[in-house]
Amino acid sequence: MSSWVLLGLFVCSVVSAPFSVAQDAPRDDGVKVGGMSWARNFVPKGALEQQAAMQYAQVIQQAQQARALGPDDFPQVVRLRTIANKLIPYTLSWNARSKNWKWEVNLLASKQVNAYCMPGGKIAFYSGILDTLKLTDDEVAIVIGHEIAHALREHGAEREGKARIANFGVQLAEIFAGLKGYDTRVAGAAAGTLAKVGMLAFSRQDETEADIVGLDIAARAGYDPRAGIVLWQKMGMINKSAPPQWLSTHPAGNNRIAEIQKHLPEVMPLYAKAHGFNVNQLAPYRPNVKGIEPVTYP
């Protein structure tokens, strides 16, 4: 194998490695996911939050102009904000900086089945995800928990830091190839492809982590973690043409369900505690659509 290919593999391994530090606030209960990646430190603290605030303001302004922004007194907006406000108090143990965030939750009229949370707590829900999936409050909480987990774990800064490392690695591969007499364009392309594959895998790691952290937050706020299983079963019913998992930034639905099931023993006691129940007293989670069976625990 040529030297620059080996260097490309090194770039890929650097990009896809977790590089975690100690968890910010260790817990005696709930999920354990380790620390946040040091790669986020390649981006100045707060920089992405400032950018996100400006971008979010533009999105909201454009939605207002297009009459696509849900008014404050609209029932679905009130519903989303009520659920988010129950989750937010449980974010501090995941990221102490979140106490200074100016949280916002807005509903945008769109058929897109999507929602997101920008760095700094800027949340947007598309009406399409509510209408298409017929989300219950528990399922909305799972979605919001997942999205705010991305912000809490600073995945945006992490990805930016990884991208900077990857770009540096590609440049290094080209320089190394040139010194060895190889075609620098071929070397750069090979290293870039390997880095891209590494970034895809890394993005899937982020999604899995957000799923797990979101479950923990939702459960502490009194929302049923089993709703996450039903959520992805619903997604599977409408998403029949997803790309292979290894080519996607999101894990396959079945894998997400398996991961949620794996962590139920950690989060179901939190949910039961929030309601003053024993875990063995919990009734099954009953979906609101046909074709999906109730989810029991244990």
Rank of each mutant, 00 (worst) to 15 (best):
S37W: 10
W38K: 14
W38Q: 13
A39S: 12
R40E: 12
N41P: 01
N41W: 12
N41K: 15
K45R: 13
K45N: 08
A47I: 10
L48C: 06
Q50H: 05
Q50R: 15
Q51Y: 11
A52H: 06
A53N: 06
M54A: 14
Q55R: 06
Q55S: 10
Y56V: 02
A57T: 04
A57W: 00
A57F: 02
A57K: 14
Q58A: 12
V59M: 15
I60P: 01
Q61C: 00
Q62F: 00
A63P: 03
Q64C: 09
Q65P: 00
A66G: 12
A66R: 13
G70Q: 04
G70S: 10
P71Q: 06
D73R: 08
Q76D: 14
V77P: 00
V77C: 04
R79K: 15
R79C: 02
R79I: 02
L80H: 05
L80W: 06
T82A: 11
I83P: 03
A84I: 02
K86L: 05
L87K: 02
Y90N: 14
N95H: 09
N95W: 07
N100D: 15
W101D: 09
E104F: 01
E104G: 08
L107N: 06
L108H: 02
A109Y: 07
S110A: 13
S110L: 09
Q112R: 14
V113E: 03
Y116K: 09
Y116Q: 08
Y116L: 15
P119K: 07
K122W: 04
K122T: 05
K122S: 05
I123M: 14
F125Y: 13
I129P: 09
L130N: 08
L130V: 07
L133P: 05
D137H: 06
